[in-house]
Nucleic acid binder design. Structure first.
Lengths: 158, 158
DNA sequence: TAAGATGGTCAATGAAGTTGTCTATATGGT
DNA sequence: ACCATATAGACAACTTCATTGACCATCTTA
């Protein structure tokens, strides 16, 4: 019957952020131990934006909400770290396809597994039923595609 | 009873971030209409780190997880926007107290009210009971102080 | 085939953080 | 009381990452 006074409105957003941060920190701690110590929170978004079939720097910039020049520099970095590679596109010689390397794919596979493991641990903490209700509530509060790839830029936005 | 397969593990963190972002974007849209169009998501954390009694640039840097120089520049910006002011500290002439101005306090008051309004709207969407369960689940998943003031730095961290 | 749109790169700029250095002032041990 | 040490704040140089602007090569289309 909710006879208690509701908590202040600012608690929910802070808890949402804290929970997200807790999960992402745990992911990166584990994936670092599995051979990927150079990855940063935003790299997962970049990998997703590149996608399994590869893309171009310009398109990547559009997906991430940055200029093509900024996207090109990000690709330069990830290329140096060995996560992506550039290849010529025979069907359009202007384009250079950016694709995940084997190391990049390995990283995505490990991330997916670790996320599933983490979800099992949350299910063990909350119970599967309450975890599903939590996910369900979030879907109703924030519907739509959860992949908002311009997020890295968003937080520090001017 | 949960006969469906569970969603992939990466959905929950993305939904957490999307929900947080949705709320913060809505807050800033409303507070901009109420006379504070220059505020950015990270400013709320800075205001909280300054606190009601004021603080110094060095202490602010420690709370935000940045150097005192960076904190000093942030204070410069907020001072120009009229949200904070510097005052001498009689008990320690080295220190310069950074305090919220009337405009800064106005901003905090409006934020708190808007957050409460937003929570009422979520309660209308989910029902008060399910919203409380969601908040409760988050408290169990991510316990501790929700004010992690080094968050602005965290996301883009190297 | 010529005009416009698009992809990639180079260069200059700006914002925000860092390290390093400096002076002034507190503080605490002898 | 004194001196060594720690701290506050400011200034400067550098790094990083994004931006805008310009440029050329290439694709698309009227």
């Amino acid at each position: 019957m909710s006879s208690e006074a509701p908590p202040p409105g600012f608690e929910l957003p802070l808890r949402l952020l804290l929970a997200f941060r807790t999960i992402i920190d745990e992911l990166h701690e584990r994936i670092a131990r599995e051979g990927h110590p150079d990855l940063r929170p935003m790299h997962g978004f970049v990998f997703q934006a590149i996608g399994p079939h590869g893309t171009t720097a310009s398109e990547l910039g559009r997906r991430l909400g940055v200029t093509k020049q900024a996207a090109g520099k990000t690709v330069d970095n990830l290329e140096q770290l060995g996560y992506v590679e550039r290849a010529a596109d025979p069907s359009d010689t202007r384009r250079k396809l950016v694709r995940l390397t084997g190391r990049g794919v390995d990283c995505l596979v490990r991330s997916a597994r670790i996320f599933d493991e983490l979800r099992e641990e949350w299910a063990a903490t909350l119970g599967e039923e309450q975890l599903r209700q939590l996910e369900d509530g979030l879907r109703r509060l924030a519907p739509g595609d959860p992949f908002r790839l311009d997020t890295p830029r968003w937080f520090g936005a001017p």
